[in-house]
């Protein structure tokens, strides 16, 4: 998630930067990541990279894959949030002696972060759910554990219901936290 946030922000900044090259690279990255299925990307990282000599353990591979993928989506969230902050905010900062970089960092980004909180939270929840996908590349997590238990016990319904409940247990409080955070942040804007 941290990877997705940091990379997402960098991508967003690249997409609004003055440099054509940066904008181009970021755009291609975002389009490719959003245009291909996450599963394909995960499989690619886990099976194709080792073939060219890059070996990653399953867990870091899963984290990396999810992070790289969500960064693309989050960059769009950040980009529209940054663009939603009125130009007057930047102009006021510039007129007060902020450099353009400082105006972005101190004035625009804090405000766009508040705007992005909701969408970021939703992506975070989706990400938790998507960890299921990483089981494909053998990350030992809920669904896979469920599979194992199922194979041993053949209590299919119970096992998968338990797995589903576990997801719910993780994502429900998360969505609550997200909306509470949003409410608090929005009070002043």
């Amino acid at each position: 998630m941290v990877l997705a946030l940091v990379l997402g922000l960098l991508l967003a900044l690249a997409r609004i930067s003055k440099s054509r090259i940066l904008r181009g690279i970021a755009l291609v990255y975002v389009e490719v990541m959003r245009g291909t299925p996450l599963l394909v990307q995960l499989v690619y990282i886990f099976f194709v990279l080792p073939a060219i000599g890059v070996n990653i353990d399953p867990v870091p591979a899963g984290i990396l894959g999810l992070g790289l993928n969500y960064a693309a989506y989050l960059s769009e969230v950040f980009r529209s949030a940054i663009l939603s902050v009125e130009a007057g905010q930047t102009e006021a900062a510039l007129s007060l002696g902020y450099t353009p970089g400082k105006a972005l960092w101190k004035v625009v980004l804090p405000q766009s972060f508040i705007v992005s909180l909701g969408p970021i939270g939703n992506y975070f929840i989706a990400m938790v759910k998507d960890t299921a996908l990483t089981s494909v590349i053998a990350v030992t997590e809920i669904l896979k554990t469920a599979n194992v238990i199922n194979a041993q016990t053949f209590e299919t319904t119970q096992v998968y219901t338990a797995a589903a409940l576990l997801y719910l247990l993780i994502s429900l409080p998360l969505s609550r936290i997200v909306s509470a955070l949003e409410k608090r942040a929005r009070v002043h804007v």
Partner: peptide
């Protein structure tokens, strides 16, 4: 940026940091 501190500007739309 440094030189702009010589000029204070007040905008029609206030532009307070929200």
């Amino acid at each position: 940026a440094q030189k702009r501190t010589d000029l204070g500007m007040v905008f029609q739309q206030f532009n307070l940091f929200l």
